Structure formats: C-alpha cells, structure tokens
Amino acid sequence: MMINSTIHSFKLPPYLHATTPAEVTRNQRSDVRLLTLHGDSGAWDHHTFEDIIDLLQPNDLLILNTSRTIPSSLRTVDGGEIRLSRKIDEQVWEVLILEKRLNESTTLYFDDGISASIVGPGMAPELTLIEFSIGGEGLMHFFYNHGQPITYEYIDTPWQLSHYQTVYSHQPGSVEMNSAGRAFSHKMLKQLKDKGVQISYVCLHTGLSYYENNRWPDPLRHFEWFSVGADTVEHIYKTKKGGHRVVAVGTTVVRALESAHDPKAGLQPQEGLTNVYIDKDTTLKVVDGLITGFHEPEASHLDMLCAFVQEKKLIEAYQAAINEQYLWHEFGDLNLIWKQTYA
C-alpha cells in the first residue's frame, strides 16, 4: 500500500470506534457531529451534521453515490467465510477467502446447493477469482438470502443490512457501505433542495477496503466500477461556470469524478473500471469540497485527503477530533474538507 509516514503520526484510541448506528442510540441517523476543515488555513470548526444546511450555499452542487450495499459476507456449508470484493461477470467474482484451508480447495459449497469453483488469482495477491454455479438475478437473490453485511472487529452487533445503506442508494453493487452519505435523511436532502443547493449523482461500486490481518489494498491494484452520466457532467460545468462549489459526498465520488476527467477534453461522461490513485501530488480538477468519515492511520483514503489539505494540517485536525472524542468508521462522525487553492 502507498502511504506517507506523516499519515501514521496519530493513534486512534479503541473507545473512538463507533459500534452502533446513530438512529439506534439517538433516534435519527443525522444525529452525528461534523468537523469542518479549511484547506488553505488549516482552521477547523466543530458542528453538528445538520449544520451542513447552513454551511452549503445556494447553487452549490452536492454529488451523491447511488451505489447500494449488497450482503457480501457468505458462509460455506462447513462454516468458512467468503467476502465478495468485485464482480467480474454474471458468475465470476473476485473474493477474499478468510480461511487458508478453503484456498486449498478447488470447489466451495454453499447452502441451497450452490457451489463455486476457484478459477485463479485475483488482481491483488490476497484475492481469489471464483465462478459460482449460478449467475445473474439468481446469484444476487442467493446473496440476499444467505449473505450478511461485512463487519470488522470493532462491530460487536449483527446490524441489519438497512443500517448499511444510504437513503438515496438504488443500484446494488457495493460490498461495503458508502458511509459518508449515511447521515443524510430524506428531510435533510429536501431542506438542502429548498435552500437552492443542487444535487446530482454518480455511481461507484466499492470493493473491500481491508483484507484482515493488517493487510490493506494497494490503491493502484484496487479496481472499482464507476459511472458518471451526461446529466451530472452538464450540472458540474454549469456549477463551475456560475462560480459555485462542487461537493463530493464520499471518497468514492471523488474517485469517480476525477477518473472521468480527461487532461485534454476535461470532464466527460464515462463508465468502466478505475484504479485512479489520488494523493498529495494530485491536483484536483473537479471537486472543491469533500464530506467524508474519519479514517484509520493505515487507510489509503487519507492519501486522498492530502489532495485537499496539507498533511500536517490534516493530522492536526484529526488530533483535534480525537481530543474532542469524535467517532470513527461507518457509524461515526463526519468531516467536511474545503480544498486548498493552488498557486
């Protein structure tokens, strides 16, 4: 994984791992905190997430990821766990096989008589290609009937799949939740529209963000499917021409939009696979602001944040969030970062 030593310079206390959805503990999913960070000055401010209605201006453009989380943790008949990572075709998936003994097999067996053949290595050394005995809608139904949401060690309760969805997602395909938009409620989105904030959409199906046992994806070998439509492209050009801001909800949206930007032709409608890696040396061409969660020291998402704000300022803001006991991960608090201007 490509990382910078500065990004490792904070430690996350275990008690800041969010383990419970906000709507369970505080009745509504929007009841989380928001740290705003200004890329130029490095100054930060503390807010509630619902303050986003005041922080965004009329004709700012908020871009959401419509990808919906699928239940991507499967159990074999003998109890082994398989985690979906990326769809290759209607029957073939790239997966993470957690038990070494299963990697030594040639066929995996699941409930309902479904099986999968191991057909080769995946794009990353930790991943494996498997071909299921069924495909298409039948295979998707099998996932929904027998799969569970992927959870990591800090989650100790088996939350329902609905807790791993955003209210606006409608295209099944992500193996993990696009959690930056989780706190938006239908009411908040309507309030933003009533204020004059514009909303547009992209789709990016997320792959696995962690391979267990302290193994993280190499961003350049981490391919994800995305789509940026013509309406969104037109909306962005109109926003930019009017001198307003484009705000991405999630690192997935940044990756999709910057992947669709051609150095010569500019932003174009596009769909396909991307392995675009964004870090401190990247000049962002499309996005002006980013709403995102708080990320662990090892996560490559932090590399992307350094395209918005200098590493030192980012880590100082993260330390402030730790001091104020902001919560991390998919059920945690959020961060709004305004991009630094470039000379």
Results as ranks from 00 to 15, higher is better:
residue 1 M to T: 07
residue 7 I to Y: 06
residue 9 S to N: 14
residue 12 L to R: 05
residue 12 L to M: 07
residue 17 H to K: 15
residue 18 A to E: 10
residue 19 T to P: 08
residue 22 A to V: 04
residue 26 R to V: 05
residue 28 Q to H: 15
residue 28 Q to A: 14
residue 29 R to A: 11
residue 29 R to Y: 07
residue 34 L to W: 01
residue 35 L to Y: 01
residue 37 L to T: 03
residue 43 A to R: 07
residue 45 D to C: 00
residue 48 T to M: 09
residue 49 F to T: 02
residue 50 E to M: 09
residue 51 D to E: 03
residue 53 I to A: 08
residue 53 I to L: 06
residue 55 L to C: 10
residue 56 L to W: 01
residue 60 D to P: 02
residue 60 D to Y: 05
residue 64 L to H: 02
residue 69 T to V: 04
residue 71 P to C: 13
residue 72 S to T: 11
residue 73 S to E: 10
residue 74 L to W: 03
residue 75 R to S: 09
residue 77 V to I: 14
residue 80 G to A: 04
residue 86 R to C: 07
residue 89 D to F: 05
residue 90 E to K: 11
residue 100 K to S: 11
residue 102 L to D: 05
residue 102 L to E: 10
residue 104 E to T: 06
residue 109 Y to R: 15
residue 110 F to C: 02
residue 110 F to M: 06
residue 112 D to R: 13
residue 115 S to W: 01
residue 116 A to L: 10
residue 122 G to K: 08
residue 123 M to K: 07
residue 124 A to Q: 15
residue 124 A to E: 13
residue 134 I to K: 03
residue 136 G to P: 13
residue 144 Y to E: 09
residue 147 G to H: 07
residue 149 P to Q: 14
residue 149 P to F: 09
residue 151 T to C: 14
residue 151 T to K: 07
residue 153 E to K: 05
residue 154 Y to N: 14
residue 155 I to A: 09
residue 155 I to H: 01
residue 156 D to R: 11
residue 162 S to E: 15
residue 167 V to R: 10
residue 168 Y to D: 01
residue 170 H to A: 07
residue 170 H to I: 14
residue 171 Q to C: 10
residue 171 Q to H: 15
residue 172 P to T: 06
residue 176 E to A: 07
residue 179 S to Y: 06
residue 182 R to I: 06
residue 186 H to M: 03
residue 192 L to E: 11
residue 195 K to E: 00
residue 195 K to P: 01
residue 196 G to F: 09
residue 196 G to E: 11
residue 202 V to W: 00
residue 205 H to E: 07
residue 206 T to D: 09
residue 209 S to G: 12
residue 213 N to C: 08
residue 214 N to D: 11
residue 219 P to D: 03
residue 220 L to W: 06
residue 224 E to K: 04
residue 225 W to C: 00
residue 225 W to P: 01
residue 225 W to F: 13
residue 226 F to W: 02
residue 229 G to L: 02
residue 231 D to V: 15
residue 232 T to C: 15
residue 236 I to W: 02
residue 237 Y to S: 07
residue 254 V to T: 15
residue 255 R to V: 13
residue 258 E to G: 09
residue 258 E to T: 09
residue 260 A to C: 13
residue 261 H to C: 14
residue 262 D to P: 10
residue 267 L to V: 14
residue 268 Q to D: 14
residue 270 Q to T: 12
residue 271 E to K: 13
residue 280 K to C: 13
residue 281 D to A: 15
residue 285 K to E: 15
residue 286 V to W: 11
residue 291 I to T: 11
residue 303 D to P: 00
residue 307 A to R: 05
residue 316 E to P: 04
residue 317 A to C: 12
residue 317 A to H: 08
residue 318 Y to W: 05
residue 324 E to L: 10
residue 324 E to P: 03
residue 325 Q to D: 15
residue 327 L to Q: 10
residue 328 W to L: 13
residue 329 H to A: 00
residue 330 E to F: 02
residue 332 G to L: 01
residue 333 D to T: 06
residue 333 D to C: 06
residue 334 L to A: 12
residue 335 N to C: 09
residue 336 L to P: 00
residue 338 W to Y: 07
residue 338 W to K: 03
residue 340 Q to S: 12
residue 342 Y to I: 12
